[in-house]
Design a protein around this nucleic acid. Structure first.
Lengths: 339, 339
DNA sequence: TTGAAAGCGCTAACAC
DNA sequence: GTGTTAGCGCTTTCAA
């Protein structure tokens, strides 16, 4: 293990200068900076992050707390965050809180306070006020992705607007009997995402004078299989079946496409289907959808943290810019069948 | 920030004793151990991992290097590893090497040597001899998942045997014209997984006196869309079409099921389809498959590292136990159509 | 079994 | 712009 002292010796400067030259803080003459960098690479020197952290109080590491790893939205956010962090020279330590709440509190009490991270990104996790407070007291920046945490800067798409857009797409095509597959109550605990999407759907309908019909709502669990079963219920009725389905996620929408096919229906001739996400498989299935951009959300979360950890020259407080979303019309939506 | 000194004071012992009591190394009388633990919890004391690492040389953190986050196999391995590490009180820092090779070498040179990790898990990554050597020199244990790394303990299923099992399942049902959708060359760079699976397929056929027909092979990219297109080619021929398809992954197998449906065929009446993985959606599609258990692979990788980092009483060298796999017969395979 | 004290390798005042 | 030096908070000899 080559240490800072050896670099200092080889470069003919003090350890302090080496530290300054390599970290970029404090002023160093170009000449000695060059000498130091040269010596460092020649010796294969890399700072010990522990020693550095201990002395400086900064770890250059951020914690990401996330409930799932194997679902599209979450892994995409993670990927975006990871990539952005790498660019900034930060490491990412991962805390997957899939399990119950016991594991969770231990993670919080320990890792945060073990001084391992400079900041944390909480993905779709409802933090208690206590947890938020603790982070705040320690001066650790915190940003949420996917759902408002009271008192915390959080990135979420406007679920009401997204759902409204998807529904309006169907309405513009001439649909009026539009079913909705949304989340069940269990999913509403975090952030009311299902409720908000349902609200947007209902608002769009009311705008054109259609009163939402509760019989046209089916709950599901955000998976393809769940969407499949829900759509079978919705489309299997003998009379007055809907001409379109708006599913609160692409996975459920894809399940709906498969259900329609199994019922002998042709999409979009017999039924139009639209989702939200722009999931991996959506293009393959020709699914019309409102895209959200989870990778971008992960990146943006990191940018916000960086702004707080290393304030740039323009100390613009990160405005609450809304997250982008975008209607992508593919081949699962069309005018309703003639009747 | 409450430090060790305060705990020592409250417990009426020295900091050395606090350290010993809390870390479990060295002997401490039960009496003082209790006092220390009591004091620690009362003060909400948690060791500073940096200070501890600096002094002891151990970080209690392991690095996981992985090329994708948003694919089933990889996120499952990661989840398994994360969970196992949590149980052992270790943190996981994530290095996603999705990008090109530049990013990759920088990760290696820096993070490993920045003393951030005690060991590393490399998932489906071919390390250069140099990289392996560096880790070795630093005394950092390394274990691979998903492909042999020369000179390194690595967990891989026996791809030849798995493919043979899948193929034999079809043969036992009476199939002889069995097509294979495998990886293209690009995927073979790492670990020859596609080649090995093809070898197993061919061996099974030869065992029953069938010479593999190269026209029954189609390459694809391990995605549903890729499998779909490959299967269309295979099944679209007017004469002598295969009665079964063995796909080298479940995603490609599911694509094949969808392709068969689009060609008006009924699975398994007109064509049987089998995959490898037991992917998320496989059950939903009724896909027969050979399950591998990536979560378990992640866990096992961690157990092996733990054995090296904290040798237990029974210093049994971890035998090269083969990884489990298992045929799961569902509804995508049946006897071939009468002809 | 316990305590005193010397570092672990670096950073950041502070002085020049 | 650069060097000196006192820590950062813990672990671990070493001696008692």
């Amino acid at each position: 293990m080559v240490g800072i002292e050896e670099v200092a010796k080889l470069a003919g400067v003090s350890t302090a200068t080496v530290s300054r030259a390599l970290s970029g803080r404090g002023h160093v003459s170009p000449a000695s900076k060059a000498k130091v960098e040269d010596a460092a690479t020649r010796l294969g020197y890399v700072v010990s992050s522990n020693a550095s952290s201990l002395a400086s109080g900064r770890t250059r590491n951020i914690g990401v707390v996330i409930p799932f790893l194997n679902r599209w939205f979450f892994s995409s956010v993670l990927e975006g965050a990871q990539q952005a962090l790498l660019r900034h020279g930060y490491d990412l330590t991962l805390y997957n809180l899939a399990g119950d709440g016991r594991e969770r509190s231990s993670v919080f009490e320990h890792f945060l306070l073990r001084q391992r991270v400079d900041a944390v990104v909480a993905v779709s996790l409802e933090l208690t006020e206590h947890e938020v407070q603790r982070l705040h007291d320690l001066g650790k920046p915190l940003v949420g992705v996917g759902g408002p945490i009271p008192g915390v800067r959080t990135l979420t798409i406007d679920d009401v607007a997204v759902a409204r857009l998807a529904t309006e797409h169907l309405i513009a095509l001439g649909h009026r009997r539009i079913a909705h597959i949304g989340g069940d109550l269990e999913f509403d605990l975090d952030f009311h995402l299902p409720t908000n999407r349902r609200l947007g759907y209902e608002a769009a309908l009311r705008d054109v004078g259609v009163e939402p019909d509760p019989r046209l709502f089916a709950p599901a669990d955000f998976t393809i299989a769940g969407g499949y079963h829900a759509a079978k219920q919705l489309l299997g009725v003998p009379h007055d079946r809907p001409t379109a389905i708006f599913a609160a996620s692409d996975e459920m929408a894809i399940g709906s496409i498969l259900a329609a096919r199994d019922l002998g229906m042709v999409v979009p001739r017999d039924v139009s289907i639209v989702g939200i996400d722009d999931y991996d498989l959506s293009e393959f299935f020709g699914l019309s959808t409102v895209a959200q951009f989870p990778r971008g959300q992960g990146e943006k979360a990191v940018e916000i943290l960086m702004e707080q950890l290393e304030p740039g020259p323009d100390a613009a407080p990160p405005a609450a810019t809304p997250l982008p979303f975008e209607l992508r019309v593919r081949s699962s939506t069309a005018v309703p069948p003639e009747r």
